[in-house]
Nucleic acid binder design. Structure first.
Lengths: 178, 178
DNA sequence: TCAAAAAGTTTCCTATAGGAAACTTTTTTG
DNA sequence: CAAAAAAGTTTCCTATAGGAAACTTTTTGA
């Protein structure tokens, strides 16, 4: 539906998009006017060719599964502190349940990086907001230091690791969209 | 690809899923074995019938647009305070740019609800975390009061409005996935 | 152990996704 | 304004999405 708008916004003609997406000009014309329904493979090619997410071309695809009530109320400190092997403790503020788009966590980065430098890496995007203290975010090629109130939004596929620096133990709110 | 696993997990047979999704049993069998590619309309019906997100059936569809660098570093108070008509001030911590899955905001709910009770409502999901003060989250049918450190994850299609209660002005971190 | 029933697969058919190219409309340019 | 080029549409064709039903395999149960 929004295909035409997205193509226009990208400044492309049907012929240009046709080449990029490896689809015929005529077929694209039909798609734009709702005269055909693409297969998911074609929709994906369009999304890549226009460098937009699928949901922007077909908003209905972006909706969460229906019937799944995603509401979760979480009182402070009401969830247990988990300490997995990589050193950073965390609290899940809402379970990573199927059908939920985001997973919010409270993260407590360790002061010292363990001997096993396992970088955290996963699909999707991550929003990192420092609540207290100072956090060093180590990426493969750079390190970013954030103080309370600072935030970083980044592609979670970039391997990363967190460290609490300074005397006060740090606390951060992390939201992952996978 | 994961269709078979998802169907099994839901405890459904091909015939049962066939009825729910209004697709033939034989065609479903082909889909599960990769012998056919569904149109987006069919993929959506499957997603609804199984009550899972599309990305769980076809992970490649869930990926963000490639080539879009979504990284944004935001220092504390480095972004302007916006005061739109509905009364709640906010700061955008990362622009709602195309291709980004989440939009993080700092929200400053008003102490008094304006005369025009415009409820906030939009597609997607919202994660609400109270940083300071106390916030009353008004929904059509209920009001939830959150203190510092409390959080609520909910379906953003439920109309809602925020209010700062108590003497200290409240501040909340909100992340929207649209 | 052997029906009988349920689950899954295959075959064959129709409707539609998608391509090639002619055609029409709009824009550019002299 | 006219000619040419570019953008978009339509026509017609082939490949495949998707349905109906027969067929095969697995499970159930006496």
């Amino acid at each position: 539906m929004n295909l035409k708008q997205q193509r226009r916004q990208a400044g492309l003609t049907l012929a240009q998009l046709s080449e990029r997406a490896a689809l015929s000009k005529g077929y694209l014309s039909k798609l734009e006017r709702g005269l055909a329904t693409p297969t998911i493979a074609v929709a994906l090619r369009l999304s890549r060719a226009l460098a937009v997410s699928l949901a922007e071309l077909y908003p209905e695809l972006g909706e969460a599964a229906p019937g799944t009530d995603c509401t979760t109320l979480q009182r402070r400190d009401a969830t247990p502190l988990l300490l997995p092997q990589n050193g950073a403790g965390y609290r899940a503020l809402a379970g990573a349940q199927a059908g939920r788009r985001m997973q919010p966590l409270l993260v407590y980065p360790p002061a010292e990086l363990g001997a096993a430098p396992t970088l955290h890496q996963h699909a999707g995007e991550e929003f990192f907001y420092v609540l207290h203290g100072t956090v060093a975010l180590h990426f493969a090629d750079e390190t970013i230091t954030l103080g309370a109130g600072d935030s970083l939004y980044f592609d979670a596929r970039r391997a990363h690791r967190t460290q609490s620096v300074g005397d006060e133990p740090a606390e951060a709110l992390v939201v992952i969209a996978g």
